[in-house]
Computed example of a mutant assay.
Amino acid sequence: MLQRPLESEYPNYYQPYIQLVPNGEIVQLLRENLLAVVNFFHGLSEEEANHRYASGKWSVKEVLGHIIDTERIMTYRLLRVGRGDQTALAGFNETDYVEAAQIHNLSMEAILEDFKATRNAAITLIQNIPAEAWTNIGNANGMEITTRAIAYIIAGHEIHHRKIVEERYLKR
């Protein structure tokens, strides 16, 4: 079982995401949450999918697109750090990515297919990381981070945003 990362293994701003990840096997959690995300977002009406809880906030579709983009970037970082690559990895502007994606033009079904592909890619990579690579240290966005911290960030980031959609957008 992959050990939870220590606070010294990642920038402090990731702490809220990592805290949301329950104890247990990370791959199993990612699989369970893949199903939870699909079940949660599947069947939303077009009105619900395009809903913004306040002016200037992302729509539900845009939140899901942000989850996907971030998971892709974090999976790439996990690959690089896990393979021992010491090249500094650039940050990204999440707002620019959401705007550029134009995800409002896609159906929720297409977005969910993209999420499934992205999550499955993360799962297979995480399953195949050698045990000794989990504590590799890399540099992302000017900060040191370990391979295992990135795996936990992937899981926690999705949980964080799904909770926001549930509480602020759909009020479930």
Rank of each mutant, 00 (worst) to 15 (best):
Y169T: 09
V27K: 02
Y152Q: 06
E7D: 14
Q19Y: 02
I67H: 03
T146A: 05
R83E: 09
E113I: 09
L79D: 03
S45V: 09
H104T: 14
D114R: 10
I164P: 10
G43E: 06
E109T: 14
R72D: 05
L106N: 12
Q28N: 12
R72H: 04
S59C: 08
N141T: 04
I68R: 02
H42W: 10
L125C: 04
E48G: 02
L64P: 04
I129R: 03
R31V: 10
A151L: 08
I153D: 07
N33A: 02
D69E: 09
A149N: 08
L64E: 02
H157R: 09
S8R: 11
Y17W: 06
G142I: 12
A121L: 04
E167G: 08
R52I: 02
Q127K: 10
V21C: 09
N141E: 10
I103D: 04
L6I: 11
V81S: 06
I26N: 04
A122W: 05
N141V: 05
A155K: 03
E144P: 07
G43Q: 09
M108E: 01
E99A: 15
A149F: 11
N105S: 12
L2Y: 00
Q102S: 13
R119Q: 08
A155H: 00
L106I: 01
L78Q: 02
L34P: 03
K163T: 13
E94W: 00
L125A: 05
N128L: 06
P16L: 07
L35K: 15
R162A: 11
L106Q: 15
T135R: 10
E9N: 08
V21M: 09
Q86K: 15
Q19K: 15
E158T: 15
T135D: 15
I137T: 14
D69T: 08
R172L: 12
V27Y: 03
T75E: 00
N136K: 09
G24L: 07
L30A: 13
T118K: 07
L6N: 13
K57P: 04
I145C: 06
E144T: 14
E47W: 01
L20H: 07
L35P: 01
L30E: 05
Y152E: 08
T95I: 13
L34N: 15
G43I: 11
A149S: 14
V37L: 07
L125K: 00
S55V: 11
R119A: 08
I126S: 03
R72P: 01
I18G: 03
I73V: 15
Y17V: 08
A155N: 04
V81E: 06
A36S: 13
M143C: 09
H42R: 14
F40A: 11
R168G: 01
I111V: 15
Q19W: 00
V60M: 05
T87W: 00
E25I: 00
A90P: 11
E109V: 13
D85F: 06
I137H: 08
Y169W: 10
V38G: 05
V27D: 10
Q19N: 15
G84L: 10
T95A: 14
I103C: 03
L79C: 03
A117I: 12
L44F: 04
E167K: 13
Y10Q: 06
T118E: 07
W58I: 09
Y10S: 10
E32W: 01
D114P: 01
S55M: 04
I137P: 00
E158K: 02
Q3C: 02
A140E: 04
A131V: 14
G56H: 01
G24F: 00
T135G: 08
